[in-house]
Design a protein around this nucleic acid. Sequence first.
DNA 1: GCTTGACATGTTATGCTATAACATACGATA
DNA 2: TATCGTATGTTATAGCATAACATGTCAAGC
Lengths: 167, 167
Amino acid sequence: MTTEQKHSDPALAFAAHDHAHCTGDVLARAEELSAETGARLTPVRRRALEILLESHRALGAYEVLEKLAEAGFGNQPPVAYRALDFLVDQGFAHRIRRLNAFAACMHPGEAHSPAFFICRACDAVAEAPAEAVRRAMEAAAARIGFSVERMNVEALGLCPTCAEAAS
Amino acid sequence: MTTEQKHSDPALAFAAHDHAHCTGDVLARAEELSAETGARLTPVRRRALEILLESHRALGAYEVLEKLAEAGFGNQPPVAYRALDFLVDQGFAHRIRRLNAFAACMHPGEAHSPAFFICRACDAVAEAPAEAVRRAMEAAAARIGFSVERMNVEALGLCPTCAEAAS
DNA sequence: GCTTGACATGTTATGCTATAACATACGATA
DNA sequence: TATCGTATGTTATAGCATAACATGTCAAGC
Ligand SMILES: [Zn+2]
Ligand SMILES: [Zn+2]
Ligand SMILES: [Zn+2]
Ligand SMILES: [Zn+2]
């Protein structure tokens, strides 16, 4: 890994880095996409995305809600769930079922079939492209005549930093 | 597919079949395994497994609880969660996070890395071996230095029967 | 300008999922 | 038979998610 290691490199989620790039670049990209498609990235929705981008963790809806409320938005659950549902629909965020939580998408706009690597020690979440995984699933599905519409692929384990610390 | 199509063929979950075989064979296998390992397949736990085996759907903990209560066991949530946790620990059941539900394992004892195919129309759940998926995940994990301990691989879509009906 | 309709947001209330904490029972072992 | 580990039962509560309704905003059509 040299200079072509981009801020969107999944390994970065598990390492110290200039996180402002993650936030700024992805947010800008989401705005471009919204302008193109006519999706309405309103203030709550935009703020919700910022909140997710401010960490590489997945945040529960109630965590997001709390921060939205701090920013002057409503403080009832539907406020957070609606904003998050919008982000997921637009592909700006992903839902991590294992954690009942949401994480900003690191590659908005790029068709991708994400896999998530969740560190059980520090709760960091890395999103990695997983085309090979998707192909394997499609193949397995084809064998039983199943047609796949959506997938959740999540792995729990230890990130490099925590694995090091544990040994 | 000819006569070597076993009751454990994942496609069967989506087709009419002699379901007593699923129930009986898998339950017997679970008992063998428990005897071998010393795991205590007590009456509640055994009944919970039977309940899961009685359908190819994934059942919520409260659904299982209701049926356990009908069988004379306690009717408070921990009764169901404890039995289900035991079954999952022993590899006799799997947790389907997308549905907040549990399904009996169709291949207890065989080391396997299951993938689940969930029909969004009829709620049937098929468990298929997915070694290729696991390998792809391990490879992706290795690239970012992540060590995988557990995985959830779930696909939502249409089973052959429902796809047919919808077209 | 006014009306209408689509959509976003706010709020109340409720339902579903999961676990903490403590009490009781029971078999194995010393 | 005293003790310990494990299983079960029960109470209470925490955490996650949505239904239903009210209000606000803006743009299209009259
Ligand atoms: Zn970052
Ligand atoms: Zn993504
Ligand atoms: Zn299995
Ligand atoms: Zn179906």
